[in-house]
Design a protein around this nucleic acid. Structure first.
Length: 279
DNA sequence: ATGGCTACGATCCGTAGA
């Protein structure tokens, strides 16, 4: 909005200022090969400026670069066959991109970051953890510690920082359709929630909780047991914003529409809007 | 009875996801 009161303008005729919006999104697509038609439709409809993708499940050579370029997006990719794989799509050029957590060697492609118009974007696909106490659960907790220590550095370097992705943690009971059923399970266990809270303590805000929200809004629903129809979901996909970006955030929503389509991903996009000061 | 989908890469079942 322009200070003169005009809404939804990039350049207002009142000439008092220039207002720019930046729309950020994250979506675990669970196979980019299968979901490409959904993604292209959603990009055309939602028109986000930056999109973080997780579980693309294909190698860089098979990334559908041409189709996404035709849709107006450049991309940086860290792909992997069958499992994991992340990418960032952007309507303006991406700079300073890198992959993985520095000093945390990992075969699994879970992290990619880049700078878009002066805003640092970190795309994460955090480990699932499989079951509390399993080897994969221990890996998840170690991985979160490495992410935490790295993000501390990244925040000091980039005051305009957004960490977006599938965190595989439902931060609070209100992010869980049935907390009794899930109590102590992977994705909601106390050590996982503590690891998520430690990220917030670095000075990041869960954008979704910056605003009043309806109850029982989730970002993932199990394919089984008619999870979506029963709204038996979890909010495990988040957008974390540094203080500077949180101050510019005007909305954060979860778009359920793609989850209603034929052959959907089990996750649906999380979106936030930034109001950038002009001039 | 502890399942139930979905994607993938390998077969016609196992692994993984969450």
């Amino acid at each position: 909005m322009c200070p003169c009161g005009a809404r939804s303008v990039v350049v207002c005729v009142c000439d008092q200022s220039v207002t720019k919006q930046m729309k950020l999104a994250t979506w675990n697509v669970n196979s980019l090969k299968v979901r490409l038609p959904h993604l292209l439709d959603w990009l055309a409809q939602a028109r986000p400026d930056v999109v973080c993708l997780q579980e693309i499940k294909l190698v860089d050579a098979k990334f559908p670069r041409a189709e996404l370029e035709s849709a107006g997006y450049t991309a940086v990719v860290s792909g992997q066959k069958t499992y994991n794989g992340v990418a960032i799509l952007c309507r303006v050029p991406l700079e300073e991109s890198s992959t993985g957590i520095p000093e945390y060697p990992d075969e699994q492609k879970r992290v990619i970051c880049a700078t878009a118009a002066g805003t640092r974007i970190v795309c994460v696909y955090c480990p699932n953890g499989q079951a509390v106490g399993s080897d994969k659960y221990e890996y998840k907790l170690r991985w979160f510690k490495a992410l935490h220590d790295w993000l501390r550095e990244e925040l000091s370097r980039y005051p305009r920082l957004a960490v977006m992705g599938d965190f595989n943690v439902a931060p609070e009971d209100r992010d869980v359709h049935d907390p009794k059923v899930w109590e102590g399970q992977v994705l909601v266990s106390e050590p996982e929630r503590a690891a998520f809270q430690a990220l917030l303590k670095l000075g990041l805000s869960d954008a979704f909780r910056l605003f009043p929200q309806p109850e029982k809004v989730f970002s993932w629903w199990d394919y089984r047991m008619m999870g979506f129809r029963r709204n038996a979901g979890l909010r495990i996909d988040q957008i974390l914003l540094s203080a500077e970006l949180a101050g510019q955030c005007s909305a954060c929503t979860i778009d359920k529409a793609p989850r209603k389509l034929e052959r959907p991903s089990d996750h649906t996009p999380v979106v936030c809007e930034l109001e950038l000061p002009g001039n």
